[in-house]
Simulated scan of single mutants.
Amino acid sequence: MILPDAYRRGPRLVPAGASRRGERTVTTERIGPPLTGGERETLRAFLDYHRATLAMKCDGLSDEELRRQSSPPSTLSLLGLVRHMAEVERTWFRKVVNAEDIPLVWSDSGDYQVAYDAGSSTRAEAFAAWQREVEHSRRIERAAESLDVTAHNARWGEDVSLRLVMLHLIHEYARHNGHADLLREAIDGTVGA
């Protein structure tokens, strides 16, 4: 298997993509995952890599640009993705793994779709909530004895391991970072990263 350049040299800062309107300013640091780390270290690094990718996709944009919807009738926006990932982090780490009885960030009724509606949201509000949930997730993951720790996912009616939770989060970020690629390109022509 041939690995992309981002992974060949191990941990390092990966540069952001270029804009068709010129170079963009990078404010988010993104470190490539290790090539020879253990399982937990590698999962943690890939999750942080994808978290940083989402933040990089939002670098340098105004609140209005971050709220710009993809293409009607879709309401998808970069800010909506940040809000959604705050809910995903909160649900999987705090509600499932840590068994906290808490509502979603933006919906007391448990409606995950509410997070996508970023029409009145701001970068400050969305990123503060997302970063707060990421920090909770990191704390919970580090405190867990092993990746084999299990918790009950009530929505699925099944027990899940921390390993599955971390892999699921990587999957969620990777999928939504693909959406973020398209959203960012439509805003200012920035590609890559």
Rank of each mutant, 00 (worst) to 15 (best):
34 P>I: 01
14 V>I: 15
81 L>M: 04
136 H>R: 14
151 A>H: 00
10 G>M: 00
159 D>H: 08
132 R>T: 11
177 N>Y: 10
141 E>S: 04
40 R>N: 03
66 L>R: 02
178 G>F: 12
84 H>N: 08
24 R>N: 06
56 M>S: 04
68 R>V: 03
27 T>G: 11
187 I>A: 05
142 R>C: 10
40 R>E: 01
144 A>S: 15
38 G>F: 09
39 E>G: 09
26 V>E: 04
53 T>C: 05
100 E>I: 11
177 N>R: 09
135 E>L: 12
67 R>M: 04
13 L>C: 01
108 D>Q: 12
137 S>E: 06
137 S>K: 03
175 R>N: 03
111 D>K: 10
64 E>K: 07
56 M>D: 02
190 T>Q: 12
192 G>Y: 05
123 R>G: 09
54 L>W: 02
15 P>S: 09
130 W>P: 07
99 A>V: 13
142 R>H: 14
140 I>W: 00
1 M>K: 14
180 A>T: 02
142 R>D: 15
9 R>L: 08
84 H>A: 03
54 L>Q: 11
25 T>I: 12
139 R>Y: 13
158 E>G: 02
3 L>Q: 13
72 P>V: 05
177 N>S: 12
113 Q>E: 14
118 A>S: 15
176 H>P: 04
96 V>I: 15
60 G>E: 10
132 R>C: 08
18 A>F: 10
179 H>I: 09
30 R>K: 07
184 R>W: 10
8 R>L: 02
49 Y>F: 13
168 H>T: 10
142 R>F: 09
130 W>L: 13
27 T>A: 10
192 G>F: 07
147 L>H: 01
123 R>L: 04
149 V>P: 06
81 L>G: 01
64 E>D: 14
182 L>W: 12
5 D>R: 07
87 E>S: 10
162 L>E: 01
185 E>K: 05
49 Y>L: 03
63 D>M: 04
156 W>Y: 09
95 K>C: 06
134 V>C: 14
4 P>T: 08
9 R>G: 04
144 A>W: 00
119 G>A: 13
185 E>Q: 15
95 K>R: 12
69 Q>D: 08
132 R>V: 06
33 P>W: 02
141 E>L: 01
38 G>V: 11
109 S>K: 09
130 W>E: 03
106 W>P: 07
149 V>M: 09
58 C>P: 04
1 M>F: 12
30 R>H: 03
154 A>D: 07
105 V>R: 06
133 E>D: 12
192 G>L: 02
41 E>L: 02
56 M>R: 00
73 P>Q: 05
87 E>W: 05
178 G>W: 13
96 V>P: 02
184 R>L: 06
11 P>C: 03
155 R>N: 13
31 I>Q: 02
132 R>I: 02
165 V>Q: 00
34 P>G: 02
67 R>K: 14
184 R>E: 12
70 S>R: 04
130 W>Q: 03
39 E>C: 13
47 L>S: 05
44 R>C: 07
91 T>F: 15
184 R>Q: 05
99 A>N: 10
162 L>C: 05
171 H>Q: 15
34 P>A: 09
41 E>T: 14
117 D>Q: 11
138 R>I: 13
146 S>Y: 03
150 T>G: 01
